[in-house]
């Protein structure tokens, strides 16, 4: 006769997860619900009067040309940051992994930028690329490119992508390097016997084995490009020129915190929340399927 195992104290696991649930509830669900609620209201900033306006805030948002260009910029910018920072970090990791002498020094030099906070990175870049005192500014101008990120959308975008990528490479590098080192030596040796071309070996053996790391990093990098670059933008361009380097997160801040328009700003947070959820879902549904852990 089969014995049925039953735990009598079913409340015990809930007690254990309660602190975590509480934290998620207070710091995620509550603000998210609050944002959802406010996005349907037209409210004065002091909370003295508020009117329920259904979808008016969303309507204002979706008919605004500015918001459309901000969304497009966010997507393009995020794509560039993710692709470039993953690509460069992968090359660096593969090369650093192959270095025999002074390996530690290389790794340290490639990693330390990780410790720089986005806002600090933004300020540093501001000084380096400043037209009056910037060392890099002089270097760029000496090539004949009249670099002017204050007035040129293209230059400002290039600058922003450059600094964002620079800031993100170390994280990707560390993870890629760890991923490379976890590939068993036996597998690599076996591959070496079967195939002479290192490029081919990389794409057929190494890269598929790195895929779980790469997938994880992609999710992390998209989140970075969407949210963590706020500090960079706030110190470097503040959306200039003409609001063309504002990301969706920065616009939430501009309208809500600077402009005190809570309804419109909340509607933007909700749109952003849905967009990121959709992106992550797409990734898990279509990309993760092709990955074998």
């Amino acid at each position: 006769m089969a014995k049925k195992v039953q735990f009598a104290h079913t409340w015990v696991p809930y007690v254990f997860i309660a602190p975590q649930l509480l934290i998620i509830g207070v710091f995620f669900f509550w603000p998210a619900l609050q944002a959802l609620y406010l996005s349907f209201m037209l409210e004065d900033p002091w909370g003295l009067s508020s009117t329920f306006v259904w979808f008016e805030n969303y309507q204002t948002l979706f008919t605004s040309a500015d918001y459309l260009s901000t969304t497009l910029f966010t997507l393009g910018y995020s794509f560039a940051v993710v692709v470039l920072s993953l690509g460069i970090a992968l090359i660096l990791a593969v090369k650093a992994n192959a270095v025999l002498h002074g390996q530690k020094t290389y790794r340290l030099l490639l990693t330390w930028v990780y410790a720089v906070a986005p806002a600090v990175a933004g300020i540093t870049a501001y000084f380096l690329f400043n037209r009056h005192i910037g060392v890099f500014y002089d270097a760029i101008v000496s090539t004949g490119w009249l670099f002017a990120p204050e007035t040129s959308t293209f230059d400002a975008t290039v600058l922003l992508i450059l600094v964002s990528v620079w800031k993100q490479i170390p994280v990707n590098f560390v993870f890629f390097l760890a991923g490379l080192q976890s590939i068993p030596v036996t597998v690599r040796e076996a591959a070496q016997m079967d195939c002479e071309s290192p490029t081919r070996r990389f794409w057929t053996i190494t890269f598929p084995l790195l895929a779980p790391t790469a997938f994880f990093l992609m999710v992390i990098n998209i989140t970075y490009a969407f949210f963590d670059t706020f500090g960079l933008i706030d110190t470097l361009t503040q959306g200039r020129p003409a609001g063309s380097t504002s990301t969706m997160v920065y616009k939430v801040y501009q309208d809500g915190f600077l402009g005190a328009d809570l309804g419109l700003s909340s509607a933007q947070s909700v749109v952003l929340m849905i967009l990121v959820m959709a992106l992550v879902m797409v990734q898990f549904r279509f990309v993760e399927r092709r990955i074998h852990y």
């Binding site: 007035t151 200039r240 020129p241 003409a242 609001g243 501009q254 309208d255 600077l258 402009g259 005190a260 328009d261």
Partner: peptide
Amino acid sequence: FYVQTREVIYNEMD
């Protein structure tokens, strides 16, 4: 909401 209107002025001037 003049802070936002000033933002529009800044952008249009750019």
